[in-house]
């Protein structure tokens, strides 16, 4: 496959044709913050945290959905991008109810660690304090809408890795929310296979194993990786290498 050469943050690198800027950066050891991206699942470019500056392109483009091109000059960490990233995170924290101290994901949350890594020491926007519910009807898992950031990772793994199609998005704008089947409680869902992939995929404390209490909810992404590798590379990870 043809290789493309490009520059990321001053580093000359080469990447496979068809690779995304995010993949290329990753291989070159440049870490771009992401939230809606999940290895192995198709990208949607929704969270806008991975936006990068590409010389000659007036708009900022998401690294996760933009393909590399010959001679691209990319900046991933300008002051402007850092400012936008912090604002994006502040908007998320103000949007729903993130009370880290009492959250199952405390200490194991991608949103939380992104926030401190981006230097977010407080939220300048007024908190919305919306009223959202917790769906505890499923036998094994729970969903706390207060912590959901609508990254749709759960929806994508449920449809494209598990193939169950249980999870979906309903509503618009600030009222958008994750539903099971045709907006029924998760426990009543006919299609859910109880595979738990959505729970493993969730970056925040929104999806959790029942019985986890504050700060206990750790995720095991190897279960997703296993399937993705099996599907894409036709290899089974045996854990014995």
């Amino acid at each position: 496959m043809a290789a493309k050469t490009l520059t990321i943050d001053g580093k000359q690198i080469s990447a496979e044709e068809g690779a995304t800027v995010l993949q290329a950066a990753d291989e070159a050891g440049v870490k771009i913050p992401t939230l809606c991206h999940l290895d192995g699942v198709y990208d949607v470019g929704a969270c806008r945290l991975c936006l990068v500056e590409i010389a000659g392109v007036p708009k900022l483009l998401p690294a996760c959905t933009t393909q590399v091109a010959e001679g691209m000059v990319i900046h991933t960490d300008s002051e402007r991008l850092r400012k936008y990233r912090r604002m994006t995170l502040e908007l998320l924290f103000a949007e729903r109810n993130h009370v880290c101290a009492v959250c199952v994901a405390n200490g194991h949350c991608e949103l939380q660690s992104l926030a401190y890594n981006q230097g977010m020491d407080h939220v300048r926007y007024e908190y919305n304090f919306p009223k959202w519910s917790v769906d505890n009807t499923h036998r094994l898992f729970g969903m706390d809408h207060n912590r959901c950031i609508l990254c749709t990772r759960c929806v994508r793994v449920c449809w494209h890795i598990e193939g169950a199609g249980t999870k979906n998005v309903a509503g618009r704008g600030g009222k958008a929310h994750i539903i099971s089947d045709l907006n029924m409680s998760w426990g009543q869902s006919y299609s859910c296979t109880e595979c738990g992939k959505c729970v493993q995929a969730c970056p925040t404390g929104a999806l959790f194993h029942k019985g986890s209490t504050a700060a206990e909810m750790e995720r095991d992404r190897t279960r997703l990786e296993f399937l993705v590798t099996a599907r894409e590379k036709k290899q089974w990870i045996t854990g014995e290498e």
Binding site: G45, C47, R48, T88, L92, A94, N128, G171, G173
Partner: peptide, 20 residues
């Protein structure tokens, strides 16, 4: 704000804050 589809964060949450 009402018509935002809710997919991306800046528009979904940003319009709410600008409206506030």
């Amino acid at each position: 704000m009402d018509e935002s589809c809710g997919k991306c964060i800046p528009c979904r949450a940003g319009t709410v804050q600008m409206h506030n």
